[in-house]
Computed example of a mutant assay.
Amino acid sequence: MKTTTQWNIVCTVDDLVPESGIAVWTDDGPVAIFYLPHRLPALFAISHTDPFSGANVLARGITGDLKGQPVVASPLYKQHFNLVTGQCLEDDTVRVNSYRVLLDGNAVRLEVSKARSMAKAA
């Protein structure tokens, strides 16, 4: 079965905070969108849920750079998550979902699976 995707508007550029994250709600659940204007690309999106605690807190984490990769440190237990892949740097068995995100004029769009959207709606 071929999975198709759609680009949903989740916020506007005015909602973004430089060097920080915001949380948005999607059909996939809560997603953290990070705006790092000093990097190209400047937008990153991963699941907002910390897999170690189950709390929706990753958008509140501290952003940084480890070995040339953009990361966020969970505000609870301080694990680092790669903002491109979602991989936890301290535990290679743990990964959060990562999403493609882009700026379309003033709108921030997030790519989500239509199959997931339909399954959640059912």
Rank of each mutant, 00 (worst) to 15 (best):
G61E: 10
Q87W: 09
I46H: 01
L58D: 14
A59G: 11
H48G: 01
F52N: 10
S47Q: 13
G54Y: 13
G86F: 11
A73M: 11
I46K: 01
D92F: 14
V71S: 04
A73I: 09
Q79V: 13
T49Y: 05
N82L: 06
G68S: 11
K67Y: 06
L58W: 12
Q79D: 02
L66A: 15
G61F: 02
G86N: 02
S47M: 14
H48N: 15
G86D: 06
T49P: 02
Y77A: 02
H80W: 11
N82H: 10
V72N: 01
D92M: 07
T85Q: 00
D50V: 14
V72Y: 00
D50S: 08
V71D: 05
V57P: 02
P75D: 09
I62V: 09
S47I: 06
N82G: 03
I62D: 00
A59P: 04
V72G: 00
K78V: 06
I46T: 04
F81D: 04
P75L: 08
L58F: 14
R60Y: 07
D91M: 03
Q79N: 12
E90T: 07
L66V: 05
G68M: 04
V57Y: 14
V84I: 14
P75G: 05
V57W: 13
S74C: 07
Q87Y: 10
I62G: 00
D92H: 12
Q87E: 11
L89T: 05
T49L: 13
G54K: 06
A55Q: 12
Q87T: 00
V57T: 15
R60H: 15
Q69M: 09
G68E: 11
P51V: 10
S74R: 08
D91H: 12
